[in-house]
Amino acid sequence: MKKLLNFLHQLFLRPSTRIGLGILVTGGFLAGILSWQGFNTALKATNEEAFCISCHTMHDNSLQELKNTVHWSNRSGVRAYCADCHVPHDFTDKIARKIQASREVLSQILGDIDTREQFLDHRIVLAQREWARFEANGSKECRSCHDYDDMDFEKMKPAAREIMRGAAERDQSCVSCHRGIAHELPDVKGGHNPAFDPLRSAASSQSVQSGQTYYLAAPQELYAEETLERKIGHIEMATAVKVLETKGDAQRVELLLWRKNKGYGRVWYSQFGLNITNAILEKEVSRDAQTINVLDSREDALTGLEWQQVQVAGWIPKNNLIDSQEPIWSIARSTYNTSCSVCHRQPQEAHFDANTWPGMFNGMVGFTNLDNETAKVILKYLQNHSSDFSNATH
């Protein structure tokens, strides 16, 4: 061991007695060049598309999605490769991204995203990381091709021209509006919005009296018996219900709504003639006269359809009611003003009537990452504050 330590000391710490200083410097210089060239060669190789899709997860998922977009094939013949979007062009940022990407490589090796199902489960996490990176750097990689200074706004369609000019004035990140243009968007339908948690907390402490009207703090299934076993329908959030009685962990409630007298009439609405969905009944009970009471019937002059005022009683789990819709609308209003104003100035609530809002909103919501529950509540808020309920001019 002592001899080994002496040898290492002689080799690295003491001046050479056999090799000239010039040779050592020259050799070190050449070794440095070779090392740097090797590093750059390896760096370039890992930027090639062949490397990116060498694992079947990327080849079978991301590549196949890219092939269906204009970034793969278009009239100009210019293609965007993986590294063009996902590898920063600046050297320092590029190295940082390479280090970050090592965890994705590790996940592939460990089999965390080895199947299509696993990839879809992880897609929201992967997408949010890239969205955050693009937001932080102003979508620098996108703008190496699509720069605001080089855009001819007069050649755009009028609606796009207005939006893009506003984005250019704010120097807005491209990914704020343009998501899902090269790969499919994550499925956020089962996502959870923590903004609703205070509503559930308030519902758990809400004092409920029989004969009074309350509002659902969360979507609930409607059951035939207090045992909560046989489902007869589904009630949407913010729907008004009249409490009839409470037994154990269940409450019997009454719904008084409207339906169109066509088909099974499963979808129930809050107002006559307005498509504001509040409940959906199971097919086998929606026309059961023993369960459903028809109180009124009238024709909608605009559509010629017959509408019926209907009533049903059923059971829901207790501790899910609050005494006002306003806390729900407050959350919906705040989310609408923040999530729906990223790309352009959102319309005022009273700009459309209740039956127009679903088509308008569904055309916009695809460009957001709102979960299904939040999207439903925002639409319901917009419909309940539409021109049908407002005297405001627009």
Rank of each mutant, 00 (worst) to 15 (best):
I163W: 02
S144R: 15
L244M: 14
G366K: 15
E245Y: 04
M156A: 11
A101W: 07
L256V: 04
R259H: 05
V310I: 15
A289D: 15
L110V: 07
A392Y: 02
F12A: 08
I109A: 13
Y336V: 00
R123C: 05
A203L: 04
Y264D: 12
L379H: 04
E169S: 05
K98D: 11
E141C: 04
E299Y: 03
L120M: 11
R123V: 02
L199T: 07
G32E: 00
A83N: 10
R97D: 13
A42E: 00
S102W: 10
R170N: 04
S387W: 03
L8H: 06
D288E: 13
Y381W: 12
I95V: 15
V294F: 08
R170Y: 00
I280H: 03
N6C: 10
T277M: 09
I163A: 04
K242E: 13
M156V: 06
K242V: 07
V243E: 10
G111Q: 11
T115M: 08
K260C: 00
A136N: 10
G248D: 14
R129K: 12
K262F: 06
K231P: 04
L24C: 07
S386R: 02
F352A: 02
S205P: 03
Y264I: 01
K2P: 00
H178P: 02
A167K: 02
D150L: 12
H9D: 12
N68V: 08
D300W: 00
R103H: 10
T356W: 08
A31L: 14
H183L: 15
N362I: 02
V87T: 10
E154K: 14
D114F: 06
L110T: 12
N384D: 04
V342D: 06
I95L: 13
S330Y: 09
N320G: 12
F134H: 11
R143P: 01
A238H: 09
Q346D: 05
S210H: 03
I280F: 02
D152L: 12
S204G: 12
F134P: 01
T368V: 02
H178G: 03
M164C: 03
E236T: 08
W315G: 05
T57C: 09
C340G: 02
Q290E: 13
Y81F: 09
S102D: 11
L5K: 09
L63S: 04
S330W: 05
S204C: 03
I232L: 11
I276Q: 09
A31F: 12
R79Q: 15
C142Y: 06
L185F: 02
S286Q: 07
A392P: 02
I95C: 00
T115I: 07
G359F: 09
A354K: 03
Q108W: 10
P194Y: 05
L382A: 04
K2G: 01
L34A: 12
P219V: 07
I328S: 05
